[in-house]
């Protein structure tokens, strides 16, 4: 059996799944609002953590945390389970589906046959919703796809028990209770507050705006330190982290700007519109940064495409983001004082 489920394509898998699940339970909020309330915007560059021999750069918070924080801030309860046994994991999924509850799954993207071949890497923090089943065929709403799809049981099982970094271990989640009144405004404030903290107020130099600055300093040294060939691979990895796997463009900066616009409406705070405009400008800088990285990768450089210039761009982004979140902080503080 399968329940009617409204599939909405989204830029990013986790926010898309959360928004789609919330919509199903009558809480109509957009993907970008989920992203902001869940304090998804982040930055981290860890040169010592390597994925396929390339350093980890993240533009978002830890996988799973957007769902957790967004629902927490909205006062919505979720049930989540992990499994040791693959059989138990599939049986539990079937039970929920038979009860008519759409279930979110964490999955390894490598094993999902409907994903275009060029995007199938061993990336395990993908999310999708299963909302029904007919024998061994599961009705899947994957937010990165245009339409819902049907997926075989075998593939779903394999994807749920993918191994390696962020291995899902059969993780599944569903919304268990929604309060009578969902306070979106309060949740938005909490999300904004948390993002200010994540981006500016973490006393660790590799995350938030300090992390952007740090990457700016590192990137200049790449050609000497790594040699031209590896430096280019590092750049390519950066572009992919920023633009691939559904960031909505510019490493989530555009999605956050969209959130700021919505938040402005939700809170009746016009100054957030200005911040959204500034965030868009920052996003455009990030896009230009990716474009220049790509030109260096392909050795199709034009005047001024150097690693030094890339470093300058990043440091500039860091300054701009720092100012933006500083101003956001003072707006929030004014509201606290007034309240």
């Amino acid at each position: 059996m399968s329940v009617p489920f409204r599939h909405q394509q989204a830029a990013h898998c986790e926010t898309g799944v959360t928004a789609n699940l919330l919509c199903h339970h009558g809480v109509r909020i957009s993907e970008s609002l989920v992203f902001g309330i869940g304090a998804g915007l982040h930055f981290a560059h860890f040169p010592f953590i390597k994925i396929n021999d390339l350093p980890l750069t993240a533009f978002r918070s830890f996988p799973g945390s957007i769902l957790k924080k967004a629902t927490k801030h909205l006062g919505i309860k979720i049930g989540a389970e992990k499994f040791w046994s693959q059989r138990a994991a599939m049986a539990s999924l079937d039970r929920r589906l038979d009860a008519g509850i759409p279930v979110g799954l964490q999955a390894g993207i490598f094993w999902l046959p409907y994903i275009p071949a060029a995007l199938r890497f061993h990336f395990n923090a993908h999310n999708l919703v299963v909302y029904g089943r007919n024998g061994d065929c599961y009705a899947v709403s994957d937010p990165v796809m245009e339409e819902p799809i049907v997926c075989a049981r075998e593939d779903i099982q394999k994807a749920r028990f993918a191994r390696g970094m962020f291995s899902p271990k059969g993780r599944m989640y569903y919304i268990s209770s929604v309060p009578e009144h969902v306070d979106v405004a309060n949740a938005t404030l909490r999300g904004l507050n948390e993002s200010c903290r994540n981006m500016r107020e973490v006393a660790f130099p590799l995350v938030g705006v300090k992390g952007v600055n740090f990457l700016g300093n590192q990137i200049e040294k790449w050609p000497e330190k790594l040699g031209e060939r590896r430096a280019r691979l590092y750049l390519a990895q950066l572009i992919r982290m920023q633009e691939e796997i559904g960031t909505g463009g510019a490493g989530f900066r555009f999605m956050y700007a969209a959130f700021l616009q919505e938040a402005s409406g939700v809170l009746g705070e016009n100054r957030l519109m200005d911040l959204a405009t500034r965030m868009t400008a920052i996003g455009d800088r990030w896009r230009l940064f990716a474009l220049r990285c790509a030109r260096i990768c392909k050795a199709r450089t034009v005047e001024g495409d150097t690693y030094g210039a890339l470093g300058d761009m990043l440091r500039d982004c860091a300054v701009r983001e720092d100012e933006l979140f500083r101003d956001l902080r003072s707006i929030l503080q004014e509201r606290w004082a007034a309240a």
Partner: peptide, 23 residues
């Protein structure tokens, strides 16, 4: 105002993805 816009892809990303596959 922000809207969701469909895109078939972006060349810089294609280049970066292509490099990963080359490896």
């Amino acid at each position: 105002r922000y809207v969701l816009a469909p895109s078939t892809g972006w060349e810089p990303l294609n280049i970066a993805n292509g490099m990963a596959w080359e490896v």
